[in-house]
Design a protein around this nucleic acid. Sequence first.
DNA 1: GTAACCCCTGTACCATACTAAAGAGTCAAG
DNA 2: CTTGACTCTTTAGTATGGTACAGGGGTTAC
Lengths: 156, 156
Amino acid sequence: MVQGLQYNKKKAKLKIRTEMNTFTIGKVAKKVGIGVETIRFYERTGLLKEPQRNDSGYRQYPPEAIAKLSFIKKAKQLGFSLREIGELLALRQNRDATCADVRVQAEEKINNIELKIRDLTRMKEALTKLTCQCFGRGPVSECPILTALEATVEEP
Amino acid sequence: MVQGLQYNKKKAKLKIRTEMNTFTIGKVAKKVGIGVETIRFYERTGLLKEPQRNDSGYRQYPPEAIAKLSFIKKAKQLGFSLREIGELLALRQNRDATCADVRVQAEEKINNIELKIRDLTRMKEALTKLTCQCFGRGPVSECPILTALEATVEEP
DNA sequence: GTAACCCCTGTACCATACTAAAGAGTCAAG
DNA sequence: CTTGACTCTTTAGTATGGTACAGGGGTTAC
């Protein structure tokens, strides 16, 4: 901010920022559909590289940043964690990386998701079984759902 | 050791602890198969009520505590959050609660799980579709998985 | 009596992914 | 020139479910 003030006095109102095809953090956030805080958070955690600044210290994002954030958003919707997204972004940068590398990541993720689905399905079946035993009548003390959960550990 | 026939109150504390059917936190943890820190954590968060203490300030758990912690453990395996488990435990205590109340909770949870499964299935399908488009050959720059994710947001 | 455990409190920390607030500077419109 | 919207940094808090000390004291077996 000190440097910003100094520059501002010298270079007053040259509209470098608007003549270039850059966006403020707010515009980017709006275009992508996320919050400005989220973008700054991604920058802090290294997911997004630090953008250029204008004379006031405002972040200036090129259009690619919007593409990158859209990428992040979509990958997140696909269930990738920020760490995994970071790996995908790194692959994208890596000239030696091949399509196959990306495919491996995607397949790992698919296996991952399948595992989660299996877990949830097992949970659901267990719960369904319990609710089928419960007629929904009588006091809670006789509820088969709770009594099933109450079963204590046996003495060794 | 207590000597002779005399019932020494000061020395009887040791006796009282062992003659009653109570357990130290470590024993409980072992029986249930969780850590002592976890039990203290449950107590801190109000999931478990504070047990009696002996003269040394040690927690003394009745056998019911083991049942309760087993309940918590099993409910957790079924995908209930600690908050939801707290609600189930409260229902169990509530004399006015009925079996139907428990059933409602279980059914809500089932719906919840189904929703998650649907979400994951959609993710999986999207990813599978992308990987089917990728032959795993060529440079990363031409990977259809990444290019699909790269699609930018259009101008409004 | 002394080592090897156990238990106590309190605090801080792990990961994940943000979100908010304080306090100050910047910018464009009226 | 003022106002309001925007931006900056730093710090701290949210929720979830724990885990890991530190620095004390208690208990047990030999």
